[in-house]
Structures are given as structure tokens and as C-alpha cells.
Amino acid sequence: MAAPQDHTRLNLSAGLASVTVAGFLVALKLWALWTTGALSIAASLADSAMDLLISAAGLGAIIYAARPADEDHAFGHSSVEDLVSLGQALFVAGSAGAIAVAAVSRLVSPAPQALAQEGAGIAVMAASAAVTLFLVGWQSRVAKRTGNKVVAADMLHYVGDLIPTIGAMVALWVSERFGWTRVDSIVALVAAAIMLRGAAEIGLGAWHALMDRAASPEIIAGIAEIAQIWPGVRGFHDLKTRTAGARLFVQIHIELDGEQSLEAAHEIAASLKRAILEAYPQADVIIHMDVWKHL
């Protein structure tokens, strides 16, 4: 297993690569939008601008969340990831709404909006897709090695970005080949809908985490299963969980035989904690030991 320092270095490299690629794509698509006037490219540009914001915030969150717990933040700093995600979701929703309004305006207009230099626009979108695929490949490799959920989520987001990029290429090709310029607005509406759905998912997940919502039923059931079968544990109760960013916080009361030594009881609790951490590496586990009462 790689050292924590190696994990941090890999996660930072993925974050820096994401910011660099997003900045490059924003500049490239700004030129394409100015050249073609295509709304589908505007949708892809807004998505890339959102990516730049998300990537920069994600990189900052990776750096800040990695800080150890201190006197003012006894449970660490991982909640910053949820705060950043909530802000990102609001930005995404606003951008999608603006694109949708512009697309509907063009669709209801009696005269279709003319596009220009579709070939140049297609070339730009193809280059954007190629660069995005390269970034996704690197992020996938880093996420598999380090298990960092921020990098994994960013990777999935960029996979979703390929949809409006490919849609813009299709719209420009149809416009150049058949003169159907309204397809551009339809593609922009689809891209806006995808962005709104992503914003809702990101925002809802961040909101639940900030409100200390419990972990998923699957995770809770998995922890309970480990505790139920652990040697020396006669029972357990008050299993509580919450999430903050990529961190999972777990508290559980276990019932132990009061006739055994204190050292033996602590060893049972410590071994159970190690087992939970092995199953959920991002967890912060607190185990309370209670005396098992004979019925």
C-alpha cells in the first residue's frame, strides 16, 4: 500500500491536472463561441467554466480537508468539501437556467439563428473531448490507487461533460450538412437539463452532509454486521453515523463481559475498530465499551 504522502501527492496532481484542463477548455470554447455563435457551444462553455470553478474549489478542498484535527476543529476539516459542493451546485443551476432561457428564446424566434464556421467549432469540440478523455483516464488511475472520493467524483463529473461536448459536435455537423440550425438550441436544452440534474444531486448530497444525515443504509448494515459477529462482543447498541465530505464518522456502544480484564476488553474494542477501518478506510470510529448484563 502506498504511503499517505504518496496519496496526497497523487490527489494533488489530479486536482492540478483538472484545473489546468478546465482552464484550457474555457479558453478554447470561448474562441469557438465567438467564431460560431452556437448555443450548444455556449452550453459546453458554461459547463467548462463550471468545471474550472469546481476543480479549483475541489483542489482547495483536498488541501484544506487533509489538514489534521486541531483545537478549533476537533473532528477535522472535511466539512469544507460539502460547503464547496453546495456553492458549486447553486452556480451550476444558475448557468443551466441561463442557457435554457436563451435556447427557448431562439426556438420561438420566427427567424432561425444562423451559425458560422461550423467546421472550426467541430474541431474545437473534438479537441475538447480528447483532452477530457485524457484527464478522466488520469483521475481514474489516481482514484483507484488512493481511494479519494473527491477525485472520483470529479472524474465522474468530467465523464458527464462529454455529453454536451459531443452534442455540440452533432449540432454543428447537422447545421453545416443540412442547415438545421434549431438543432443547436435543442442540444443546448438537453445539456441544460443534464446540468440541472447534476446540480440537484450535488446540492442535495452536500445539504444532507451539512445536516449530519446518517450514512447510507448499506454502510450502516455493513458496520452492524461486523459488530454482530466480532469475537468477544456480546451485543451492541446506539450505532450512530454521519458524513462530512469524504469522511465517515461512526459511534457505537459494544457490550462486553464484565468479568474479563480491562486489557482484554480494550483489545476487543481495538480489534473491532481496526476491522471497521479496514472496511471503511475514510471512517473516524469511536467505540464505547459497556458491561454486558446477564439476563
Rank of each mutant, 00 (worst) to 15 (best):
A130K: 03
A130S: 08
A130H: 03
V131R: 04
V131C: 10
T132V: 07
T132P: 05
L133F: 11
F134M: 13
F134R: 01
V136R: 06
G137N: 03
W138M: 07
Q139A: 01
Q139E: 13
Q139L: 00
S140Y: 05
V142S: 04
K144N: 02
K144Y: 03
R145T: 07
R145V: 03
R145C: 00
K149G: 02
K149Q: 14
V150H: 01
A152P: 00
A153F: 01
D154L: 09
D154V: 00
M155F: 00
L156S: 07
L156Q: 11
L156A: 08
Y158P: 04
V159Y: 01
V159C: 14
V159D: 02
D161Q: 05
L162Y: 09
I163Q: 11
P164N: 10
T165P: 05
I166L: 15
G167I: 13
A168E: 11
A171H: 09
W173Q: 03
S175P: 06
S175Q: 04
E176Q: 11
F178V: 03
F178E: 06
F178M: 02
G179R: 01
T181A: 08
T181P: 02
D184R: 11
D184N: 10
I186C: 14
A188G: 14
A188M: 14
A188Y: 13
L189E: 12
L189G: 13
L189P: 11
V190I: 15
V190Q: 11
V190T: 14
A192D: 12
A192C: 12
I194M: 15
I194K: 08
I194Y: 13
L196V: 15
R197C: 09
I202L: 14
G203Y: 15
G205D: 14
W207Q: 07
W207T: 15
H208E: 15
A209S: 15
A209F: 04
A209M: 14
A209C: 06
L210G: 10
D212P: 04
A214H: 11
A214E: 13
A215L: 11
I219A: 07
I219K: 05
I220K: 09
I220P: 03
I223A: 06
A224S: 14
A224P: 07
A224I: 05
A224R: 12
E225R: 13
E225I: 00
I226F: 02
Q228I: 00
Q228L: 07
Q228P: 00
I229M: 03
P231Q: 06
V233S: 04
R234W: 03
R234N: 10
R234D: 09
R234I: 00
G235P: 08
G235Y: 05
